[in-house]
Every structure is written in C-alpha cells, then in structure tokens.
C-alpha cells in the first residue's frame, strides 16, 4: 500500500490499525508482516516511521513522478535527468515499481498533499491512471484520504441524485458538471454566485481571501452547530444539532460504506436535515423560478 501526500499517523490516527496495515486478512494472516507500506511525501512526517520505504520528493513534483512511474511500469525508457528533478534517483523508482508489481493487491491512498498542491486535479487524475494501468500486472486500486466526516457521502448522494459527484450546476433545470467552472472556489473568486447556503463547512476559515470577500458581499446563510467565521460575515445563521453527537442519520466512510450514527446527546437545536427541509418548504410557497417546477423536485 502506498500513501501519497498524506500523514495518516496524525490526520487519520486509526487508519493504520483499524483499516490498513495492521489488520489481518484472508490472504494476509500475519497482518503487518505480510504487507509492504510505502510513503511518498515532501517531508518526513510521523507516518514515515510506519513505512517500509519512505520516498521524500521535491515539492510540486508529484505529477512528474507519477508520469515517470507510469512509463516505468510499462518498461518504457525515461530520461534520468528528468527523473532526478523529482528529488529521487531512478533506482528508487525502479525499487518502487518492483514492489508494486510484486504486490498481490495494491492500493494508493492519496491525500491533500497530492490533490491540493501544484497540478491539483491533474495529479489526482494521474494517480488514478497509474492505479488503472497497474491492473495489467496485478490488482490495484486508488482511494482518496477524505478529511471531513461525511464528504464521501456528499459525493455518493450527488452522484445518485444528479449523476455527478460535486460542483453540479442546476441553473438550467438539469445537471451540468464542470470542475473549474462550477466549483465553489472558482465561482466565489470570480463573483458568479449571488447567494450562498453554507452547511457542514466553514469556508470563512478555509477559503482564499477573495472568495471570503465575495461571501461577505452576497447574502450568505449558514447552518452550523456553532457561530463560525462564516456566520460572522453571513446575513443569516441558524444553529443546528451536531452531526453524530446529537443529530442522527447516515454517513459514508471513505471507502463508501454507509454507517448509521448513534447520537449520545439530545440537542436543544433542530437538525440540519429539519432546517434544510423547512427552507425547501418555504421556497415552495414562493413563486417558481421556472414555471411548473416547484413541488416536483426530482429525488
């Protein structure tokens, strides 16, 4: 298993023990001893201690490295000088390719160090291609290391309701998908949207400044268990029960396994689900933006 651009030891503390290297499987009866773990990152994080092979690469060279690996697994010639640019000698790459091909079942877990740095979705696409091409030799999959609780659920729900996983534009009454055009940061930085409903997120603390500036300019509505950074610049804030602590429901694990929540507390606030439903009902009572549209939401 390859962890790329992530630090599970600190960011997903139980990933190793509960799901990956330490668990005993049908074909990995000895648990950790039957597994090889490789960590690819730009700095030596605490996760490196758990790895059999740690590859420290130069920042922003992920795409180049993946491209070189894709060539090497197919036995093509690569330019040694170009490989050295990534911060790793060709021999290390060959060692990695040998380990990958020797695996009976390989997995690449890629983190934000890959998907949020130079190259962004091109890096993610490259790593998925690498995993796909490895299937000519052995079973190989790739999985993103999801940060927030139910972000996987958001992908799943949007996929089965609209056909696309994120950044879905329903302005024409049917779904359109184009990351870069309909993704939040781009919409906000360009100033395309003229109202925003934020739930289960705090963009006021994480977005680039021009995006935050635009959120402050337009009517922003926030649903959150706390008064957040975003709430302070929003026109409307509604306090809701905390998901999983005092609000029940279903969430998806990062490997797309749905799990039920078992809340331990009873909140004095309504749940997000209830508030969104009530906003939807309130919208329904107003004139439709498209004739004949209201009340016929496709679920």
């Amino acid at each position: 298993m390859i962890y790329w651009g992530g630090n599970p030891a600190e960011c997903h503390p139980r990933h190793f023990t509960k799901y990956t290297i330490m668990q005993k499987g049908k074909y990995t009866q000895n648990g950790r001893k039957d597994r090889t773990m490789v960590l690819v990152d730009i700095r030596e994080t605490p996760s490196a201690k758990a790895a059999n092979l740690f590859l420290q690469i130069r920042p922003g060279k992920d795409f180049e490295l993946i491209t070189a690996l894709r060539a090497l697994i197919k036995g093509q010639r690569v330019n040694e000088d170009a490989v050295n640019e990534t911060g790793l000698p060709l021999s290390k790459l060959e060692e990695l390719v040998a380990k990958m091909k020797a695996a009976r079942f390989g997995v690449i877990f890629f983190g934000m160090g890959l998907s949020m740095t130079r190259g962004k979705h091109m890096n993610s696409a490259a790593v998925l291609m690498l995993a796909a091409e490895m299937n000519a030799f052995t079973k190989f999959v790739a999985m993103p290391m999801r940060g927030h609780g139910n972000v996987t659920g958001a992908d799943v729900v949007m996929r089965y309701t609209t056909g696309y996983p994120f950044g879905v534009n329903l302005c024409r009454g049917y779904p359109r998908f184009n990351p870069g055009e309909f993704s939040t940061v781009d919409l906000l930085v360009r100033g395309d949207v003229d109202a925003c409903l934020v739930l289960g997120a705090d963009p006021g603390a994480t977005m680039p400044q021009p995006g935050i500036d635009h959120l402050a300019k337009i009517p922003t509505i926030v649903l959150d268990p706390k008064v957040t950074h975003t709430s302070r610049l929003a026109r409307v804030h509604i306090t809701t029960a905390a998901t999983g602590v005092s609000a029940p429901g279903t969430v998806y694990r990062m490997d797309e396994i749905p799990l039920p929540l078992r809340p331990a507390l009873k909140s004095p606030y309504p749940t997000d689900e209830e508030v969104v439903r009530r906003i939807r009902e309130a919208v329904k009572r107003r004139p439709a933006w498209l004739p004949g549209r209201n009340g016929k939401a496709v679920m």
């Binding site: 609780g149 972000v151 949207v193 003229d194 739930l199 279903t250 749940t271 689900e273 919208v283």
Partner: peptide, 24 residues
Amino acid sequence: MPLVYGLSNVTCETQREAVSLAEM
C-alpha cells in the same frame, strides 16, 4: 445563481434535502 456549499459534516439525509433545494 445561488450556491449550496459544504455538505461535509452533515448526514446523507441532509445532503438529499440540500440537492432537492438546490434544484428547486
């Protein structure tokens, strides 16, 4: 052109409601 954004720390049931609201 309203935007519904976030959906990370909410349940799937809430996300379904949010998709429906965005469509509406």
